[in-house]
Design a protein around this nucleic acid. Sequence first.
DNA 1: GTCTATAGTTTGATAGAC
DNA 2: GTCTATCAAACTATAGAC
Lengths: 168, 168
Amino acid sequence: MRDLSKAVGIRAASLYHHFPDKQSLYLDAMEYVFADKAEGITMALNGNGTPFERLEQFVTRFVELMGNDPNFRALLQRELLDGDEARLKLLAERVFIGPFQAIAALAEDLAPDCDPHMLAISMAGLVLFHFETAPIRRFLPGGQPKHNDLKVVAQHVTRLLGKALGEN
Amino acid sequence: MRDLSKAVGIRAASLYHHFPDKQSLYLDAMEYVFADKAEGITMALNGNGTPFERLEQFVTRFVELMGNDPNFRALLQRELLDGDEARLKLLAERVFIGPFQAIAALAEDLAPDCDPHMLAISMAGLVLFHFETAPIRRFLPGGQPKHNDLKVVAQHVTRLLGKALGEN
DNA sequence: GTCTATAGTTTGATAGAC
DNA sequence: GTCTATCAAACTATAGAC
């Protein structure tokens, strides 16, 4: 609260005039940030084109979102790790449901015989894990700076999913 | 430190006789736990069989490890999220290098034309993300209890990777 | 709506007896 | 090697003046 108060230019005690407690402030801020980002992803998914072209669009946008905003990515992963049930329910129902449904719909177009919920999770995880592991990958065999290049990551994921899903 | 002291049955001050500070205690404990788990995965990867059989073996074992030990999975993700450079370097060089090299070698057998470092990351991430998102997936469309079944997750990931990598 | 001052906890760590 | 006692710092939150 003290760090935040410095960042916004008022004293810590004054924050309690605008928010009842720390939890409420965090929750409001989180919802604001996530809703903002989710909109960008949903738009990328509602475009036209073949399923494979839309897959390419989604992967590219999602890679850019995660790569260009490390703080947002860390916040997302912290919520998945530490969020209690009530907070995750709120986050799911108010923010994630839109983009997730769009990804699942794309998944069903790409592979009608596959569980769309599971495939949607796989598609997102495939992108996210490359960024989640970025700080440790430099110390692992074969790690190169190019593996942090957004275009290289997007191409790798797109090709892998394309081959897995028939590339039609 | 106080919680831990209760768990082990001595007073908090006594912990400082065995470890110089909280960081050292945490680091020692972490290294012990990770080394223990990494051995199991490496063994599953050094078996015989066709590349696809070894892929099936790896995915099954990795899914079981993450599914049966949620605390270990959370610890792994917390390190990736919060670990400073020195700690991640130590973790990578002393613990992860073994299993990672084995996964990368399998990746090269499965797809010689693909970057083995990137494919290894994708293989691990595909498994991990299904567990990382477990607490929020119940609130997302299409989420069912069976998606937390270890066999269902293993089969989904194996099929997806099998199709992507030619299944030979 | 912001401030100063401070209450009430909790934390990591130390001193020194036994 | 474990204990009691305690320190110094940091934290969330409140009280009350302006």
